[in-house]
Simulated scan of single mutants.
Amino acid sequence: MGITTYLAIYFIMWWITLFLVLPFTGKSQAESGDVTLGTVKSAPSDPKFGRIIIINSIVASVMFAIFYITVEVFGVSFEDIFTFLPKFG
């Protein structure tokens, strides 16, 4: 695979892990006890987007490293995935 493919895969992994990281990184307004008028109680009370982006980038980088090692070192390709699936019929 080329560098462009790896960058696209990392970008997709980064966005997927963003939705994994977001629920664990903050308190809602209801939890902090300070609900701003006109917002829902589940809105974040103090979003720290810089911290979220850093944590997300670390998680995505670890996942990408596992993917890269699996593909480049162990030689597992997309076609090999189907050999692990059970055969029906």
Rank of each mutant, 00 (worst) to 15 (best):
I55D: 01
D80W: 07
Y10H: 09
L7V: 06
F78Q: 05
P44E: 10
S77A: 04
V76K: 07
F24P: 00
T83C: 00
I16S: 08
F64S: 04
L20R: 02
I58C: 04
P23Y: 00
T4Q: 12
G89P: 00
G26F: 05
R51V: 02
V71F: 07
W14E: 12
F24Y: 02
E31G: 11
L18T: 11
A43G: 05
G89Q: 04
I55N: 15
G89V: 11
P44W: 08
F24I: 06
I69H: 11
N56G: 07
E79L: 14
G33M: 08
S32D: 10
E79F: 13
A60Y: 03
L18S: 14
K48R: 05
F64T: 06
E31H: 03
I3S: 09
T5Y: 15
G75R: 06
F84S: 04
T39K: 04
D34S: 10
S28G: 13
L22E: 09
D46V: 13
D46F: 14
F19P: 08
Q29M: 06
S57N: 12
I16L: 12
G26C: 02
D80S: 09
A60G: 11
I69E: 08
G75D: 10
T5G: 12
I12C: 05
W14T: 11
T39A: 01
V21R: 06
M1F: 07
A65S: 13
P47A: 00
F84N: 05
